[in-house]
Nucleic acid binder design. Structure first.
Lengths: 144, 144
DNA sequence: CTAACTGCAAACGTTTTGCAACTTT
DNA sequence: AAAGTTGCAAAACGTTTGCAGTTAG
């Protein structure tokens, strides 16, 4: 977690980021990571696939899926499961939460300290170590 | 939410519960709800299907899926999505959270006030009404 | 030369759907 | 008869996998 990554990196920087996460920076992986880290965003596999192959076939479906799995594994991106029909990948891996607009499905970031839910590390009565905390809010905007 | 439902209801009581949620208590719906409310538990569709048809064909797959959707819709049960491969249905609809053991996949309840995450109703910077809060903890038990 | 990676196409598992048959009123 | 419900079988969906071919060290 020592990487000071920011959005809008050039491909060389993306390669560096991948290396720092023990990932061999191949052409396809760089393309995928480069897209993901353009900004703070939540993309799913088929959006990534479509965007990358918009102009010409650049990456295959299998590679997108496999690569995303590697990224999650190596903690380059955070996997978000809001509904069973689609996995989102969050370029922002720092402590924050999510609000889903039930009408539009749009995802909004909610800052970690805006909600007073402490960074947990242990659940007492289970005597269990917490590795991941995700707080998901679902609701409705004023008047859509 | 005025129903004072408890676990281990008889089928007549289950029918009553369904009626109070504006659900026509058909034979299949009663069977499904009766199973779900036997105790506080997290079941998924295929477990429900298998359990009900263990001795003889009682409910079809389509009906289990359709019924669960009705139940979620009418807030008889709470839908839990921890991973994209399976939806769990929680017979406990009151305020509480979940801990998933990453090694076993087992789901544990975490009481709402054990974690100091307030019952949210509004997200300030979004000016959005919160309809649902779910806090999911993933982690590991002492030594499995 | 070997190990890692990619991509095609087929498979997977859960969930959804169209539609005809059956209840219930 | 009309409305609601069920169940079969097929389809749909995102995702995963086997394997052959390619690339990189």
């Amino acid at each position: 977690m020592e990487d000071q990554k920011k959005y809008g990196m050039c491909k060389r920087e993306v390669a560096e980021l991948l290396r720092s996460h023990d990932i061999n920076p191949t052409t396809q992986r760089i393309e995928i990571a480069h897209l993901i880290f353009q900004k703070a965003q939540h993309l799913c596999a088929d959006e990534i696939l479509a965007e990358l192959n918009k102009e010409y076939e650049q990456v295959s479906q299998a590679t997108v899926y496999n690569t995303l799995k590697v990224f999650v594994d190596k903690k380059v991106v955070r996997e978000l499961v809001f509904a069973p029909d689609r996995i989102y990948y969050d370029s922002n891996t720092s402590h924050h939460h999510h609000f889903i607009d039930v009408d539009t499905g749009k995802i909004y970031d909610v800052s970690g300290d805006c909600v007073k839910c402490p960074e947990l590390s242990y659940v007492d009565h289970l005597k269990a170590e917490v590795l991941e905390v995700s707080l998901i809010l679902k609701g409705r905007m004023p008047q859509a």
